Amino acid sequence: MSDDANLIERFLEMLVAEAGASQHTLAAYRTDLEQASAITGGRLSCADRELVSKLPSHWRKLQNSTVARKSSSLRRYFRFLVEEGFRADDPSDALPRPGSARSLPKTLSHGEIESLFRHVAEGLEREPGKAAISRLSAIMELLYGSGLRASELVTLSRSSIAGDEPFLIIKGKGNKERLVPISQQARSAVRRWMEFVDPMEKWLFPSRTGHISRIRLFQIIKEHAARAGINPAKISPHVLRHAFATHLLEGGADLRALQTLLGHSDISTTQIYTHIDSARLVELVNNRHPLSQLDLAR
């Protein structure tokens, strides 16, 4: 299977798991992406901005609504490739941009995060010897506490946890390794879960056929959200990763630090991926700007 074909399948799998996409929606995405792949000679997934800019010339005879859909399909696909670490840059700014501007990615409030972790803590207290709740605890700590991608989490090996070292060893695209900080609480959660995993097992989160799938990970997260009283439609592994970045930014982290933590090659990706609540910006100016300390009425 070619890189384009393989990555398109992974993208469609994500749409089913995260967005609950219908068969009709999947068929539309598949058609748009496979046609674009054919136009680019099977190089869509690695296409640069110049190659992507040539796609609209093949859409001249199409209705505006169809062009808008194709552009949207490709934008979402390239965003997926960047977010999952399959490429470092997003060339989709070369595509037509009909309609309204792209909305910010979904995130969770501090209160919603507290509800999710409170439900985990209650489960651990109620059934400390149950494997399912220990696995959930480890998953939540790694997704929100370390900002891992779904693909990075499901493919974690047992050897990724180096004793009591305060970091994880993550292998990304091209087998490039990066270090991801892991809190003491997360290490404790992982150690508790490892007691349920066969010492000879390769994967940290195994399944009958290898490691757990992305789809199963999405299911675990959404089931947990429902039990914690949060709308499952609001949450996914990527939403937790985005909450990790957003809350760090709100807490004072700078974009360069976030770039390192998230494993982004380009700072512009981090700028798109993170955002600050506008109300906090207003408060920041009102309370921190030097002029706010001056009484100009005197």
Rank of each mutant, 00 (worst) to 15 (best):
D4I: 01
V16D: 02
V16S: 00
A21V: 04
Q23I: 14
H24K: 14
A28L: 05
Y29G: 01
Y29I: 00
L33W: 07
A36G: 03
T40C: 15
C46E: 15
R49K: 14
E50N: 15
L51Q: 15
P56F: 07
R60V: 07
T66K: 02
S73L: 01
R75K: 04
L81W: 13
L81E: 13
E83H: 14
P91N: 05
P91Y: 05
A94C: 08
G99F: 06
G99C: 05
L108E: 06
G111N: 15
E112C: 02
L116E: 02
H119V: 03
R126Q: 13
E127P: 13
P128Y: 06
G129Y: 13
G129W: 11
A132V: 12
R135K: 09
R135H: 01
S137N: 11
S137V: 03
Y144F: 08
L153S: 02
L153W: 03
V154Y: 09
S157Y: 12
S160V: 00
A162V: 14
G163P: 02
D164F: 03
D164N: 13
P166C: 12
L168C: 06
I169V: 15
R178F: 01
P181C: 09
Q184I: 12
R191M: 08
E195A: 15
E195K: 11
D198K: 07
P199F: 04
P199C: 03
S207D: 07
T209W: 13
H211I: 00
S213M: 02
R214Y: 04
R214V: 07
R216L: 09
I220V: 03
I220K: 01
A225H: 02
A226H: 04
P232V: 00
S236Y: 05
S236D: 04
P237Q: 11
R241G: 03
A243V: 08
A243N: 09
A243S: 11
H247W: 11
L249S: 01
E250W: 08
E250L: 11
G252W: 05
A253N: 06
G263T: 04
T270G: 08
Q271K: 07
H275P: 09
L281R: 10
Q293I: 08
L296S: 11
A297R: 15
